[in-house]
């Protein structure tokens, strides 16, 4: 009867909570900051509109792509691929032991875990072009500087994801081998690595794709590969050559992505 005598629910909760004064302040602050950023970044619609004819000119000069330098360009694209492959593979191989040190369940000591984790995040947060400039300055211009950059870049990416895969591995096969006195290295390889393998293969393929993409721009700062050719063509207003380069880069990146997609399907 309490239910019957109870008033029907006349007060329906409103759709939105009343906005608090804090969110109002935050919103105003954001608008202010965004306007300031537009100003700082010299964002200008008029410049964009003025630039449109230039874009049209460049595009029209791109066709037909130049075929005269196609062969040297193809060679350079191939070097880019080689750089990416060497950099990614060495990076992946070096990432594996680091990942075991940086995974909570396999690290020999919490301190080791912290130090390796911190180092890997540091490596990851420094952009690859900064690494490229650093390596060009230390080992000179050319693909080797690019390879070193890609190695470091791959480690920053892979060591972290490998470590996460290792932490997610089922602990029970490992415990079973621990119970019978198997050594740490043996257990890591035999019980943990197979568990983490699909994830590791996936990250590795992804880092290979990533290496191919970033190796294209490394040439811009002199770290070898096709990027340098692209910069030179653009600076010399040879947009037809630039078009050839861009097409070949597209074929390369697309090809590698298809290949790794196929490998992913086969392995997983």
């Amino acid at each position: 009867m309490a239910i019957e005598s109870g008033a029907p629910a006349t007060v329906i909760p409103s759709r939105f909570d009343n906005p608090s004064w804090l969110s109002g302040v935050l919103f105003v602050l954001f608008i202010g900051f965004f306007s300031w950023a537009l100003y700082g970044s010299e964002f200008s619609l008029s410049n964009l509109v003025e630039g449109i004819p230039n874009m049209g000119v460049i595009m029209s000069e791109m066709v037909p792509p130049d075929t005269e330098r196609a062969w040297p360009i193809a060679k350079s694209v191939f070097v880019t691929l080689q750089m990416a492959l060497v950099g990614a593979v060495i990076g992946i191989v070096l990432s594996l032991p680091l990942a075991f040190l940086a995974a909570r369940n396999t690290s020999p000591h919490p301190l080791v875990y912290k130090v390796v984790r911190a180092w890997v995040s540091l490596v990851r947060t420094i952009p690859d072009l900064a690494w490229a400039l650093f390596f060009v300055a230390s080992v000179g211009l050319g693909p080797f500087a690019g390879v070193l950059t890609l190695i470091v870049d791959t480690i920053g990416f892979c060591a972290r994801f490998f470590a996460e895969a290792i932490e997610e591995a089922d602990p029970q096969p490992n415990e079973a081998l621990k119970a019978i006195g198997a050594g740490t290295v043996d257990r890591c390889v035999v019980a943990i690595l197979p568990e983490a393998a699909p994830s590791i293969i996936n990250s590795s393929l992804f880092s290979l794709e990533k290496a191919v993409r970033s190796s294209v721009v490394l040439g811009l700062v002199g770290a070898g590969g096709i990027g340098a050719e692209l910069a030179v063509s653009m600076e010399m207003f040879r947009y037809d050559q630039a078009a050839t380069i861009i097409l070949m880069v597209f074929v390369l990146v697309y090809g590698v992505e298809r290949l790794s997609g196929w490998a992913r399907e086969k392995c997983l």
């Binding site: 081998l177 119970a179 035999v190």
Partner: peptide, 30 residues
């Protein structure tokens, strides 16, 4: 000392992605 004791757990103790023979072989890892 643990190598002197064989341990059989209730479940999920084999390495699923490896062959049966490899799993048996791992018994010698102690």
């Amino acid at each position: 000392a643990r190598t002197r004791v064989g341990f059989v757990f209730q479940k999920h103790q084999l390495v699923g992605r490896m062959s049966v023979l490899s799993n048996v072989l791992h018994g010698a890892l102690g």
